[in-house]
């Protein structure tokens, strides 16, 4: 089976194409799947995370997956960020230090993931950020990773990748999992039968949490939104058939025809932000508990 993609950006259409790819291959097993990128002139590298997650799911059905006709700049980026080395191409070093590596990690690899993020943020090609922004960005990425580990219950790992846009002072980072998705989690643990879009909105509101056991929860996504709002960045969440997009203090939701088989969180940060992010004087360590 041959499937062609066109340009993939971090937007509704970009995710929709990847979902369509899975839909077309959903009945294939023990087959050969060729994903043809001849028509792709622009592929935002952070989208390697959901793209890789979907291809991993397809290959788990014992299909042989090939990514073909990757040329020019795109080939260079997808080789340097390590994506194509999963599909029969040799690894090449990223001498310019301008790519963010594509990774598939197991859920128990939180510490390794932490070190990977620290390594990439000190690379020469990554835009310099203020100390406060650097710390908040790093913590946001860790929050997304922890959220995926706790809520998705995935056995297929967690996929991450990023893209830097130095001239636009933007850094995009995506984390995808192949777990149960927010809608299923809300249905199973909060006994609410919501659409996928409603479930994403629910997870981001007030004190809502799907946690029921001895460990409280429900802060991760809200902290993320709080930071991104101050930073004037953007968050996208794709889960099941739901698409949620937050920027400039406003959120929008849309629905896909078919589901993404898990959850993707993409954050876009404004790397030129000089805000200190330190609200510290308000908190007295003796008055914490």
């Amino acid at each position: 089976m041959e499937i062609s993609l066109s340009n993939v950006k971090s937007d509704f259409e970009g995710f929709n194409q990847l979902i369509a790819l899975l839909q077309k291959t959903k009945d294939c097993a023990f087959g050969e799947i060729e994903v043809d990128l001849a028509g792709v002139t622009w592929f935002e590298a952070n989208m390697c995370a959901p793209f890789g997650a979907i291809l991993y799911k397809v290959s788990r059905e014992l299909n042989s997956v090939r990514v073909t006709n990757v040329h020019g700049k795109l080939e260079n980026i997808l080789l340097r960020n390590g994506f194509l080395s999963n599909y029969g191409r040799a690894v090449i070093p990223d001498r310019q230090g301008t790519t963010i590596k594509y990774k598939r990690l197991e859920t128990k690899d939180a510490r390794f993931f932490g070190s990977h993020i620290d390594d990439l943020l000190t690379k020469s090609g990554i835009p310099k950020m203020s100390t406060g922004l650097f710390k908040k960005f790093r913590e946001s990425i860790f929050e997304i990773f922890s959220n995926a580990v706790i809520h998705s219950e995935t056995k297929l790992g967690i996929f991450s990748c990023g893209q830097v846009f130095p001239n636009k002072h933007r850094l995009d980072f995506s984390i995808a999992d192949l777990g149960m998705g927010i809608r299923q989690n809300v249905r199973q643990n909060a006994d609410l039968d919501l659409t996928a879009e409603e479930a994403i909105n629910w997870a981001l509101e007030g004190k809502n949490t799907t946690k029921k056991g001895p460990i409280p929860g429900g802060l991760g996504l809200k902290l993320l939104r709080e930071f991104i709002e101050l930073n004037k960045g953007r968050i996208q969440i794709v889960s099941d058939k739901g698409y949620w997009d937050f920027s400039n203090g406003e959120s929008q939701t849309r629905g896909f025809l078919h589901p993404f088989p898990g959850t993707v969180v993409n954050i876009e940060i404004n790397t030129a932000d000089e805000r200190s992010y330190c609200l510290a004087s308000e908190i007295n360590p003796k008055n914490i508990f």
Binding site: K207, P216, L219, A280, P285
Partner: peptide, 23 residues
């Protein structure tokens, strides 16, 4: 009690504590 915490980490801990009390 806590010691050697960076100021913004105190903010995070306070939020966690308030969330836990509500939970």
């Amino acid at each position: 009690s806590v010691s050697d915490m960076q100021p913004d980490d105190l903010v995070l801990l306070k939020k966690v504590v308030e969330t836990a009390k509500d939970y």
